[in-house]
Amino acid sequence: MKITLQVNGEPREVDVAENTLLVDVLRVNLGLTGTHVGCDTSQCGACTVHLDGRAVKACTVLAPQADGANVLTIEGIGTPDELHPMQAAFRECHALQCGFCTPGMIMQAIDLVENGDQLDNAAIREGLEGNLCRCTGYHNIVRAIQSVADAG
């Protein structure tokens, strides 16, 4: 079936089978491989993107469900010359080790800062419930998000 969606501000059209996952549309059809597939069972959050402004796990959204939607991926938030403040904070705080979980962490962190109020350490850790870092590098991730939240 034909699906049209806005991806990082660009209108895109893909022709996929009904049982295609949104994450595969992004990675395979559109070549946006910044969104990662970690567990493929909606637990690890590496595939987190924004669907109509909300953080979702793209491995658990069917392509037809995203028809007509607005999708924002890690590729759409900044450029190498002009990083998104969350990307800059992750670099500054060394909030990554192997980097595999980072795109999902950043997309969830942006949702958290945009929609959460009073983001203290505990609220940030609670907000990262759905994102796993197998390097267990949470401390600096929390620090990076805190710095963006504090900067308002």
């Binding site: 909606s42 969830q108 419930e129």
Partner: peptide, 9 residues
């Protein structure tokens, strides 16, 4: 319930 991404769906 679950986590933020799950609660969004």
């Amino acid at each position: 319930i679950g986590d933020n991404q799950v609660r969004n769906r």
